[in-house]
Every structure is written in structure tokens, then in C-alpha cells.
């Protein structure tokens, strides 16, 4: 299959970027999106043009590093799938693909499709942990029994891979789904419940300070999330915030 790509090219954080048109010829429908980009990049190198910088790491759908916005949808048109697990059979011969980086004030573009996502790390550092004592005297973690429904709920929230697609999809550039996944994951566990009030306040404050927007319940985040994280965790975070007020 042959495709026309419109790819965002930007030399550096302060450079002005623009969409460049490239042709991807003889793409196998069985190749992944990243393999297709690898082929395009090889052609660019042969032509003496800088290859498109594209973040990627595991290429197994685990890490989420590869995220970019494809035809207006973070990670492309396939539901609950990261960019690396998206295959070209999802597209048709002759299609045009617009490929852009995550767009948010808190995610400055490093180069081309690569953005700096350390703002998400800052949110985690502000409270996405538990200060649990460990060691022989306390006993091991498995001594604290946790019911199956709570463990499942917590694990569903913990499925977040921190790719930032929620921010990229949100009309407000908010990181509420990312933040609330961590708040909810920890708030329901006995180890995390102790610091729940502090955590929700600190993490939502860190989110705002990092330059993310505010959640207005568009639910675009849930639709874009490659892990299918539910906006019920945002409702849970709102509950935790109300509890923290009291």
C-alpha cells in the first residue's frame, strides 16, 4: 500500500515547526506503524534528509513511549492500542496520515514527534507513592490481606503506563486521568489510604503547576487511553478531594 504522510518536523524546543509531506511506498499491511516510519526514515536518510525523530522503546505496547497523534487521535485509530501495536492494516491504500506530537504546554516538543513528558514524573513525585515501613519487624507486604474487588480496582488504575495520551486527547490539555489513576490506585489500599488526603491535594496541585489544564469532563482521555483507564477514577479522585476538605 502507498500512503501520504504529513509529519510534524521541528528542529528543537524553540524552533518553529511545520508539517512536511512524505510518501510511504510499498508499505506492507502487516508492518507496524513504527516499522512503516522506520522505512520512511531510511528513505529520508538516503536522500540526505534528517530522519523523523520518534520516541519509542519497548515496541510491545508496554511502555507507551511511542505515542504520537495520528489523524487527530492519540496512538491512532485503534482502540486501547499504543502506536507501536498499531498495524498498517488499519489503514487503506492511498490514505493520508497526519502525524503530530502530543500538544500541551506541559509537554514541550524536544524534536519532531518527541515531547518532554517529565511533567508527569513531577506529578508522581508530589505524591504518587506510599511511605510504608518495610522490614522484618513490620512483616512482609503480603501479611496485609486485601479483598479481590479492591485489588482489582487498584490494579485497573495501576494499569496506567504514563504515556500522556489522556493529556494529548483532552480538549483542555488536562492530566486528570493520569493523576487520578494514581490517586485512586493508592487510596483504596491500606498502605496508601494513610496519605490519601495529602496525596490528592499535592498531586492535583502539581498537575496545575506543571501547566496542565483542568478537567471539564469531556471524557476524551478515557477514549484515547491505550490501557482503557476509566474516568470513574476521576470521580473517585473528586471524592478523595472532598474527603480531604473535611
Amino acid at each position: 500500500m502507498d500512503l501520504t504522510l504529513y509529519v510534524w518536523r521541528q528542529d528543537g524546543p524553540d524552533a518553529k515547526g511545520k508539517l512536511e509531506q512524505y510518501e510511504a511506498k510499498n508499505v506492507s499491511p502487516d508492518s507496524s506503524f513504527l516499522e512503516m516510519m522506520d522505512m520512511v526514515n531510511e528513505d529520508l536518510i538516503n536522500e540526505g534528509i534528517d530522519p523523523v525523530e520518534l520516541d519509542n522503546d519497548c515496541r510491545e505496547g508496554i511502555c507507551g513511549t511511542c505515542g504520537c497523534v495520528i489523524n487527530g487521535i492519540p496512538h491512532g485509530p485503534q482502540e486501547e492500542t499504543t502506536t507501536c501495536q498499531l498495524h498498517m492494516r488499519k489503514f487503506s491504500d492511498g490514505d493520508s496520515l497526519t502525524i503530530e506530537p502530543w500538544r500541551a504546554a506541559a509537554f514541550p516538543v524536544v524534536k519532531d514527534l518527541v515531547v518532554d513528558r517529565s511533567a508527569l514524573d513531577n506529578i508522581i513525585q508530589s505524591g504518587g507513592y506510599t511511605s510504608a515501613y518495610t522490614g522484618e519487624l513490620i512483616g512482609e507486604a503480603n501479611n496485609t490481606l486485601i479483598s479481590k474487588p479492591i485489588a482489582d480496582y487498584s490494579m485497573d488504575a495501576a494499569a496506567c503506563i504514563g504515556c500522556g495520551a489522556c493529556v494529548a486527547a483532552c480538549p483542555n490539555g488536562s492530566a486528570m486521568l493520569f493523576t487520578s489513576a494514581k490517586v485512586a490506585q493508592l487510596a483504596v489500599l491500606p498502605q496508601g489510604a494513610i496519605e490519601a488526603a495529602e496525596r490528592v491535594n499535592n498531586m492535583t496541585e502539581a498537575m496545575l503547576n506543571a501547566g496542565f489544564g483542568n478537567c471539564t469532563n469531556h471524557y476524551e482521555c478515557e477514549a484515547a487511553c491505550p490501557q482503557g483507564i476509566s474516568v470513574k477514577f476521576i470521580a473517585k479522585t473528586n471524592r478523595e478531594f472532598i474527603k480531604a476538605l473535611a
Partner: peptide
């Protein structure tokens, strides 16, 4: 802003 943005859920 995006050159192309498709909203799914809102």
C-alpha cells in the same frame, strides 16, 4: 493547536 484533532467521546 493540532492541525488535525478528532474528538471521540465529548
Amino acid at each position: 493547536d493540532y492541525n488535525q484533532k478528532k474528538n471521540i467521546r465529548t
